[in-house]
Structure formats: structure tokens, C-alpha cells
Design a protein around this nucleic acid. Structure first.
Length: 204
DNA sequence: GTGAAGATTAACT
DNA sequence: GTTAATCTTCACA
């Protein structure tokens, strides 16, 4: 593998991200996330994600227009990274979508490892391929994603997404995970996964 | 200033 | 199925 010359696909441009969260969820499933870090390059195909639909979604951190130091980046235009710490120990990554001031985002739940697998194994402390990126916290560890990437422009040279022409053989949907506090919004089928993938975080 | 909760994970029983 | 780990963020006073 040549560093800085990852040519598996075409980098997604700004336009790609300037759409509604549910539309983005369908379009982003199967795309490849790439992080070209100082330690090395890692890449994984998105096989599971959740859509968070902004001010009217009780599960969303921007519910009710909440705007804080943490959520500020959600109001930026699509194509930026929203990374936050959960339970004091794990980072989670979201892809901000839609236009400025419309805080929709895509929460990454699982990737299929594609590139830099040895580095992923080292970071995760396991050789089990299926467990490297199968979970929101796990994929951030494997990909080297932490809060230093908060607000990162996904149209830059560090962290980006690519389209290699892969089309999911099918898409399955279900309820989002661990947002019981969201009332009836917890029941919406806004979790999406590539049908048949062995790399999803849990049964849907 | 204080306290409670969390878009999780790994290791238990 | 249950629970501990661990700490930032946020709401409220």
C-alpha cells in the first residue's frame, strides 16, 4: 500500500453531504471511510449507521435547537465530523449532513475493515477481524478517531469518504440503539445496515 | 458549584 | 442478562 495514494474510489464532494439525513443514510451506506493519520492509513466500508434528524428528533443531541460547545458543529454545513466522548471512555463519530443550521447527522455504528488492518488490530488489541470495527466505540479506536478530529472537514486531506462503486445487495432497517430516553422517536426505524454483512454491531 | 446521565464495551453470572 | 469502568457535558441552583 502506498501512503497518501489510496485510490480505491472517488472522494465524496461537498454536494454529496448537502441533503436530508434519511437520504444521506441511504447514500452513505456502503461508502468507504478513510483516515490518513500519522500512524498510517486505515479505511473501512460503512455497513451500519443511524440517522439523527435534528431539532425535532428527541434522540438527537440537537433536539429543540440545543446549541452548546459540543453540538455546535452539527449546525455547520454537511461534510464535517462530529466526534464526542461517551460514558467517559469511548469516542463516537458522526457525519454532519444537510445545509448550514440544519443539524442532521449520520452516526456510524459499524465498518467492514478495508485497509490498514494490521494497524487496526494493533490499536484494538485483537486479531478478530469481525470485532475490529463492529460498534461505534470500536470503529473509532480501530480508525484512530478521537476528539482531535472534532469538526474536521471531510472534504480535506486527513479524514474523508470514498465511493468505489459498491452497491449494497440490500438494506435492512430497525430501531436505533440505546436511546430509550427519546420517547416515540426511539421507535423510528432510522438504523440502517447492509444486508448480509458479517460486520454489523448487533442483530437488527 | 453540584449532580446525574450517557448514540458503549468487556467481563462477568 | 447484569454490571463496572470512567469523565465530559449539561441542566439547574
Amino acid at each position: 500500500m502506498e501512503m497518501g495514494n489510496f485510490t480505491r474510489g472517488q472522494k465524496l464532494s461537498r454536494d454529496f453531504y448537502l441533503c436530508d439525513g434519511l437520504e444521506a443514510a441511504g447514500k452513505l451506506l456502503g461508502k468507504i471511510l478513510v483516515n490518513d493519520s500519522p500512524e498510517g492509513l486505515t479505511a473501512g466500508r460503512i455497513v451500519e449507521l443511524e440517522a439523527y434528524m435534528g431539532e425535532n428528533d428527541r434522540g438527537c443531541h440537537a433536539y429543540g435547537g440545543r446549541r452548546t460547545t459540543r453540538t455546535e458543529i452539527m449546525y455547520a454545513e454537511g461534510g464535517h465530523a462530529y466526534v464526542y466522548l461517551i460514558y467517559g471512555m469511548y469516542c463516537c463519530m458522526n457525519i454532519i449532513v444537510n445545509r448550514e443550521n440544519i443539524p442532521h447527522c449520520i452516526f456510524l455504528r459499524a465498518l467492514e475493515p478495508v485497509e490498514g488492518i494490521e494497524l487496526m488490530k494493533r490499536r484494538r488489541g485483537t486479531d478478530n477481524l469481525r470485532q475490529l470495527c463492529s460498534g461505534p466505540g470500536r470503529l473509532c479506536i480501530a480508525m484512530g478517531i478521537d476528539k482531535s478530529l472534532y469538526g474536521e472537514d471531510l472534504c480535506g486531506e486527513c479524514l474523508w469518504l470514498e465511493d468505489d462503486g459498491f452497491v449494497p445487495p440490500g438494506i435492512i432497517r430497525g430501531r436505533r440503539v440505546n436511546i430509550d430516553y427519546a420517547g416515540e422517536d426511539a421507535e423510528r426505524d432510522w438504523r440502517f445496515a447492509v444486508r448480509g454483512s458479517h460486520y454489523i454491531s448487533s442483530k437488527i
